[in-house]
Simulated assay, not measured.
Amino acid sequence: MTAGFPEAAPWGEQRASHTDRETVVERLQQAAAEGRIDFHELDERLEQALNAKTHGELAVLTTDLQGAGLQGVGLRGIAGAGRELVEDRPLILKGGLHGVVRKGGWKVPSRVTAHGGMGGVVLDFTRAECPPRAIDLEVHGQMAGVVVIPDDWAAETSGIEPGLGGVKDRTTPDHAPDAPLLRITGTGGMAGVVVRHPKGRERRQLEREAKALTSR
């Protein structure tokens, strides 16, 4: 020990930052999307990650996931590595008690998994930044699920199990052969899933925004 200065705590006992926790959360979500852990275990690990105080507490949540996606990067380097991961990694959304809404200019990867939960999930792709050709959406309606796509998009809903709530595909069936495609799988759950184009009020809002952009 240097005179007048205490020795630094071992790395595992050092306090974790918000960035450390967020990076581990992203890693766990990726692992679930890859099928390495199930969603029940994902819930447990996410709760532990968000409540972790030290690097050591975070490290135990990902030690059995090394080599998956991070290619062996340890937690000491995970904060930097998390920013270098491919931006197109799967996105997992959970409605929980309060629901989840994604709309506006949100960035959409090529694979999305959405669990409606008690509060439901609303996914609006009309202003989103999306891959140019196709998106794979796994949706579990549970208590509610609504998906809104642009008029020139196509939706493929034959892969959804209807469940008790069923699946309502209200999209236009005729599209250009090269139209962006939303491939939807999963289950309608208790309340079902609705896939549709924008309604009148939503369409008028989109038209106003488009005119505002062209007038600049």
Rank of each mutant, 00 (worst) to 15 (best):
G69S: 02
V167A: 02
G96E: 06
E41H: 07
G72M: 03
G163Q: 13
P132M: 10
W106Y: 09
G77K: 05
K94R: 15
P10G: 09
A210K: 04
A3M: 10
G95W: 02
E34N: 07
I92L: 15
P150G: 13
A49T: 11
L70Y: 03
I184S: 14
D151S: 14
V122W: 06
G69I: 01
V139Q: 12
G141R: 09
W11H: 15
R208P: 01
P180W: 08
L58S: 03
V121G: 09
G56Q: 10
A144Q: 13
D174H: 00
N51E: 15
V194N: 12
R208A: 11
K168I: 00
D64S: 09
L137V: 07
R21I: 14
R201H: 01
T113C: 07
A79F: 00
G82F: 03
H55C: 08
G82T: 03
D178T: 15
L93H: 01
T63C: 08
G119M: 02
S158P: 07
D124G: 14
E26W: 08
E129L: 13
G104P: 09
E47C: 07
Q30P: 00
D38E: 01
T214F: 05
Q48N: 12
W106M: 11
D20T: 06
G67L: 06
P6H: 08
R83D: 12
V148W: 15
R21C: 14
I78V: 00
K211H: 12
Q29Y: 09
V146T: 15
P162Y: 08
L137A: 11
S17P: 08
G188W: 08
A81N: 01
G80R: 12
R45I: 12
I160H: 06
V146I: 13
I78D: 02
L85Y: 01
R111F: 13
F5G: 00
A49M: 11
P180S: 12
V147A: 09
E26T: 13
K53Y: 04
L65C: 01
P177H: 05
F125I: 04
I184T: 04
S17M: 05
R170W: 12
G99T: 05
R36P: 02
F5M: 03
L58R: 05
R201M: 01
G188K: 10
G200M: 05
R203P: 06
G35S: 06
A114H: 10
A59P: 00
R27Q: 12
T2M: 06
V146W: 08
G99N: 11
A128N: 10
L123W: 13
E202H: 15
R21Y: 14
L75N: 11
D38R: 00
L75T: 14
V60G: 08
R183S: 05
E22C: 10
T54G: 03
G192L: 02
P109K: 14
I184N: 13
R21M: 13
H40S: 14
T54K: 10
R27K: 12
Q71M: 02
V193R: 04
L93A: 04
P6G: 02
L70Q: 08
T185H: 00
G120V: 05
A179N: 07
H55N: 15
G56V: 10
E87D: 11
A134F: 05
I78T: 00
S110C: 00
E47R: 15
G95N: 09
G105P: 13
L181G: 05
P10K: 12
D124F: 14
F125Y: 08
K199P: 02
R208S: 07
I78L: 11
T214V: 10
P150V: 13
S110T: 01
